[in-house]
């Protein structure tokens, strides 16, 4: 079992690294904001980064296990379909998550 001191240090280390990554680039990158190539990146990156993060959250899904693939595929279809139709993130996220919870509960791995 981890000791409270170890846990507190692990939290402090994680927080320091995370904050450093979030804050330091402003000092370094700000003078570069007028650069055309960085403006291009800033415009082109959001869709791709969000897509990579979405794919990353699916890394635990075992592609050969039906109990994993079926609920995930159906919930993904629900999220995409609901959002294309309603443009309402609340409905899309809650609807798809509720479907996934229901299917995972009824169809345990």
């Amino acid at each position: 079992m981890p000791t409270p001191l170890y846990l507190a240090t692990a939290v402090a280390v994680s927080a320091a690294v995370t904050w450093g990554l979030r804050a330091l680039p402003f000092a370094v990158l700000t003078p570069l904001r007028s650069s055309a190539v960085l403006r291009y990146l800033a415009r082109q990156m959001p869709t791709g980064i969000m897509l990579i993060l979405a794919l990353y959250t699916l890394r635990e899904v075992r592609p050969t296990a039906w109990a994993d693939v079926v609920p995930t595929a159906l919930a993904l279809a629900a999220a995409i379909g609901l959002h294309l139709r309603t443009r309402n993130a609340v409905i899309s996220v809650l609807g798809a998550t509720a479907l996934h919870v229901a299917m995972s509960t009824l169809w345990p791995a």
Binding site: M50, L51, L53, A54, T57, L58, P71, T72, A75, L76, A79, I80, H83, A89, S92, V93, A96, T97, H100, V101, A102, M103, S104, T105, P108
Partner: peptide, 14 residues
């Protein structure tokens, strides 16, 4: 089970 799909759904929406 399956509550963590909220993170996936959020990034899909974004």
């Amino acid at each position: 089970h399956g509550l963590d799909f909220a993170l996936t759904a959020l990034f899909v929406v974004l």
